[in-house]
C-alpha cells in the first residue's frame, strides 16, 4: 500500500477513517461554511457590495447619455486638454466614460452623499481602480454598470486603469474630487 502502488487492501473504501483525519475534515468544512455565510452576511449588514444594476448598452448610446450629463453639470475645465469637471447632483446620476486612453469627465462629489455612477467603455476592456481607496471594478464595452458610491473622506482621488488596454495604458489616469 503506497501512493505509487495499487492499494494493498483491495477493499480500501471499507477501511475506517482515522479520528485525526475526521477532525481536520470537520474543521476545514466548518471554516468553508463560515466563509460562505460571511459573504451573505456582508450582503445584509456590510456597506461594501458591488451593485447588480447593469444594462446592456452600446458605446454610442452611452456616450450620448454621458455628453448630456456633462453639458448639464460642468462647473469648469482643467488641464491643457480642458477636461470638464462635472459636479454630480446630490443623490443623482454621474457618468464616467472609459476610452483609449482616458477617463472622462472629472467628477466632483461630496463627502457622505450617495451617488449613482454609471461606468462603461467605448472600446476595449478597462479597469476602474480608485486610489488610494483601492476599489477595483472591471469596465466592459456594451455594459452599463450603475454603482452606488458614498465617499467617506474628502480629497483628490485618482482613477488608475488597471485592465491592460494597449500601448497608452499607463497614461490612462482619471480624477475624482471629494469635497
Amino acid at each position: 500500500m503506497s501512493a505509487i502502488l495499487p492499494p494493498a487492501d483491495r477493499l480500501w473504501w471499507k477501511q475506517s477513517i482515522d479520528k485525526t483525519e475526521w477532525m481536520w475534515i470537520f474543521l476545514a468544512f466548518t471554516w468553508a461554511m463560515i466563509m460562505f455565510f460571511m459573504m451573505i452576511y456582508w450582503h445584509i449588514n456590510g456597506k461594501q457590495n458591488l451593485s447588480n444594476e447593469v444594462y446592456k448598452t452600446t458605446p454610442e448610446a452611452f456616450a450620448a447619455k454621458a455628453e448630456k450629463f456633462i453639458a448639464a453639470n460642468t462647473v469648469r475645465t482643467e488641464t491643457e486638454q480642458n477636461i470638464p469637471v462635472v459636479k454630480v447632483p446630490e443623490g443623482g446620476d454621474g457618468y464616467l466614460v472609459a476610452s483609449l486612453w482616458k477617463w472622462s469627465p472629472i467628477l466632483e462629489l461630496e463627502k457622505g452623499k450617495t451617488y449613482k455612477i454609471h461606468l462603461s467603455s467605448m472600446d476595449y476592456q478597462h479597469g476602474f481602480s480608485l486610489q488610494p481607496v483601492n476599489i477595483n471594478i472591471q469596465v466592459l464595452p456594451g455594459y452599463e454598470h450603475v454603482v452606488k458610491m458614498t465617499p467617506t473622506q474628502s480629497g483628490t482621488y485618482a482613477i488608475v486603469c488597471n485592465e491592460y488596454c494597449g500601448i497608452g495604458h499607463h497614461t490612462m489616469l482619471g480624477r475624482i474630487y471629494v469635497k
Binding site: 488641464t79 491643457e80 486638454q81 477636461i83 482616458k102 479597469g127 481602480s129 486610489q131 488610494p132 483601492n134 485618482a158 488608475v160 486603469c161 488597471n162 485592465e163 491592460y164 497608452g168 495604458h169 499607463h170 497614461t171 490612462m172 489616469l173 482619471g174 480624477r175
Partner: peptide, 22 residues
C-alpha cells in the same frame, strides 16, 4: 494591497494629464 496595478508599464504615469503618487 496598496493598489499597484498588474500589467502596467509605468508607476509614474508619464504622459498622463494628472499625477498620482503611489
Amino acid at each position: 494591497t496598496l493598489g499597484v496595478s498588474r500589467r502596467h508599464w509605468d508607476m509614474a504615469f508619464s504622459g498622463a494629464p494628472f499625477q498620482y503618487e503611489w
